[in-house]
Amino acid sequence: MIEVLAPGPYATVQDLGRPGYAHLGVPRSGAADVGSLKLANRLVGNPEGLAGIELTFGMARFRFRDGAWAALAGAPLEAEMGVPFWVPAGGELRLGAPARGMRTYLAVRGGIAVEPVLGSRSTDSLSGLGPEPLRAGTLLPVGPPLGGIHADLAPPPAPRPPVLRVLPGPRADWFVPEALDVLCGRPYEVSQDSNRVGVRLRGPELARARNGELPSEGMVVGAVQVPPSGQPIVFLADHPPTGGYPVIGVVRAADLPVAAQLRPGDQVRFTTRRGP
């Protein structure tokens, strides 16, 4: 059992979410930066999809009632990143704020074993499915270890430039012809009201070529949706499964972790170029 002493600004349990229920109105949810959760899990010998803790801007404290192997990945903290470490019974794990990035993943050997909902332990901030966000006093059960620890070192990946590669469409034709060039021109600034639903951006306005409403249609993670304000939103894990604003482009899967690690105030650029 792990006791949350302080969750930091926002912390939730996350695994790989609830795929397959979008037609019933259920967001996929799951870790915003899937690669970092998987890495943290591998470091402690877990299957990649076990539930861990997603910290938003760090600053959390936990007491481990039982000793356990743990690992951190994602936004780098002063603590050891990318190596499994042992937390003794009764030990306290104190985590500071990340030097860069937004979301850090704490994996514990055996995984966080809260009750799953629709096959997932993820907190869905949009629909409320899954466990409540962590609070001081939340008790988190830990599952039995599965398999041995194989990796013992994963050098933290080099920081990636804040560039998101997009594939145009499916509704690029709802915008003026130069809108994609505008999107990929000057950088956008990440707004304060960004969250697990999406990264809200402020910058050059993306003008529409047509008026009227788009009938509601299925949405995907990474979709760059443009509300009437002309200011784009990049959908993250808790995005609504359907939406009525046109999507000008979709961020490549390989760049979703970059989007998930953007902080309010960061500058980000888009490109339609394929290469890195």
Binding site: P19, G20, A22, P215, E217, G218, V220, T242, A253
Partner: peptide
């Protein structure tokens, strides 16, 4: 289209989402 795809789901398809004038298929 939604019903047909659910009845004979193509390999790798994770989501089939009907809308008023569209069907979204997601297959990573």
């Amino acid at each position: 289209v939604h019903a047909a795809l659910r009845a004979e789901r193509p390999e790798g398809v994770v989501e089939i989402v009907p809308g008023p004038e569209t069907v979204l298929v997601v297959a990573p």
